[in-house]
Every structure is written in C-alpha cells, then in structure tokens.
Design a protein around this nucleic acid. Structure first.
Length: 164
DNA sequence: GCCAACGTTGGC
DNA sequence: GCCAACGTTGGC
C-alpha cells in the first residue's frame, strides 16, 4: 500500500467532477511526463490512495482523496488528433503522433472518488515542519504524480483534514 | 502575464 | 552522449 499525490487543473477535472462521474471513477488521462507515467503505470497498485490536488488555479492545494481502482491501460487520448476537449472541440492537446496502439507511450489508471476535504492550500502545507520534505514542496518540483510518505499522509489526513 | 525551473528535442 | 534551444509547468 502506497500513497500518492495527483495534480489536476480543476478547470479541466476537479474533485467535484470525480465525485459526479458515473460510478464515481474515471481514467486519469493526459499525463505526458515519463516519470509521472512510470509512477502510475509501474509503481501504483490497486487500492493505493492519493491526494487529489488542484493546480494552476486561484487556490492551489489538496482538495480530497481518491483511490487507484484499475490496472494500467493505454491512455486513449494519445491516439486521436481530432478528439474533442472542453477547451477546444477541434484540437486534442493530448495527441501524440509518435504513439501507436501496438506500442502506446502513455498509460493510465482509473481513480475512484473517496472523499472531498476542505481545500488545504499549498501555502498552508509549507508552514508545517512535518511536511518539510514533501516532494510537492521541493524547489522546482513539476511532477504531476508523485509519492507521498506514510507519515506525511497521516499528518495531512489526521491533522489537517480532520479539523474543518 | 511573468518567469524560474525543469523536461525534451535534435544537431553535432 | 553532450548541450543549447525550445517548450511546458505552475505559483504568483
């Protein structure tokens, strides 16, 4: 059992979207970074828990918890140049011309809604010495999927999510 | 919109 | 395999 943090831009996919998804789960599409992909494809296990993090928005921070609920499979958005998106129905920003169905580059897993929390802002996370070594807080960190240690997970869920 | 930091690409 | 140029991320 491992813990993770997964970033999403809430304008595209928010914790509320996950909660409202049919059956409460959907594929974590759009990862186009090898390190993040490897975490998702190779290191995650069904049943692992992850913080759902809202990035590139007015108030970046942890918004809830989700659970890894599938084995890895190819991200369908890499294959079609014309797949529509919310932002621009004519262009698929996730298309990868170098990827083929025989040899897909980008893999994903399904995530299932577990809980929504109060939003725990990034600026708050930085205040706690218990979280000083969080990968999320490391200088220049840009990974969209990263591991969270068991002690960091426990601190955030018990000390920060516990009290509303 | 700015820009620091990082990842990727591609020429050599 | 090096590394400069370029593109992207993401907080502010």
């Amino acid at each position: 059992m491992q813990y993770w943090l997964m970033k999403s831009e809430p304008d595209e996919v928010s914790i509320d979207d996950l909660e409202a998804a049919p059956a409460g789960h959907f594929p974590w599409f759009g990862v186009r970074n090898y390190q993040a992909r490897n975490f998702m494809r190779d290191a995650m296990q069904v049943g692992d828990l992850a913080f759902f993090y809202h990035s590139s928005c007015a108030e970046p921070g942890i918004a809830g918890i989700c659970e890894i609920c599938s084995e890895p499979y190819p991200d369908a958005t890499q294959f079609s140049a014309t797949l529509s998106t919310k932002a621009d129905p004519a262009v698929n920003p996730y298309f990868d011309p170098k990827s083929t169905s025989e040899n897909p580059r980008w893999w994903l897993r399904d995530v299932r809604f577990v809980a929504k929390s109060r939003l725990i802002p990034l600026t708050d996370l930085r205040r706690f010495p218990e979280l000083a070594n969080m990968r999320l807080l490391a200088r220049g960190n840009r990974l969209s999927i990263m591991p969270v240690s068991e002690t960091e997970w426990a601190f955030i869920t018990k000390e920060l999510m516990g009290r509303q």
